[in-house]
Write a protein that binds this DNA or RNA. Structure first.
Lengths: 109, 109
DNA sequence: TCTATATGTCGTAAACATACGACACGAAAT
DNA sequence: ATTTCGTGTCGTATGTTTACGACATATAGA
């Protein structure tokens, strides 16, 4: 590709885009909701809660981990996934600012 | 692909994902901000404001149009892009609800 | 009429996302 | 010791996104 001109945009917009991408698949939204609901930190039980194959769920978890919205800590033989509250709060703040800054007026044509 | 199991998720999560996808590239965030700032409805001047090729910008505009966050009305020889305020408000509401519903507690492991 | 401007469509190349099966590996139960 | 469970990694097929050049068209002005 000649692709990936993302770096030419302001850091704040890049970061917002990263979070938006993390939320851009219903499975990942479902996973976040699941993690928030079951307050215990869960392992591959997620696979049973989300109607997708184990590998696919793992992949979505990886995407969420890359965006740092979740953490995955090894707890003995199980792995313990949970929402990264710091990062999550940062996302909320960023989105809030973004949506506040975009104040459209419907003056089209 | 065996892909596109998106339909198996709740409609609300699917719609949130659609909006998130629309915001998932810095160029599209930049376009939205530009449209909101320059309160006039703009045409291909966007190409000059966004450091990308004309075709690429058009493509991003198409993605935004698909998510219905913007409209593109033909106004004589020019095309007039602007934010679809109704849809935009719906997005804000959806995100607000979503982020409210995900209330993580940092009790990891 | 010819030209420039504004716009759109098509094609294409490379990268990334989605979905999953198959295999690997270590710890706990039998 | 062998099996099972929880986990992860690899490979792979297909679809989507990103980026852009080349071509097409229609309108306004010289």
């Amino acid at each position: 590709m000649i692709s990936n001109k993302s770096e030419i945009f302001p850091a704040e917009q890049q970061q917002a885009a990263v979070y938006a991408k993390a939320l851009s698949h219903p499975a990942r939204i479902a996973i976040l909701r699941y993690l928030a609901e079951t307050k215990v930190c869960i392992t591959g039980d997620i696979t049973e809660a989300i109607p997708l194959g184990r590998t696919t769920v793992l992949q979505h978890l990886q995407v969420l981990k890359d965006s740092e919205l979740i953490r995955g800590d090894i707890d003995g033989k199980k792995v313990c996934y949970c929402i990264n509250t710091d990062q999550y709060d940062e996302m909320k703040q960023l989105f809030d600012d973004l949506l506040k800054n975009i104040n459209p007026i419907n003056n089209c044509c």
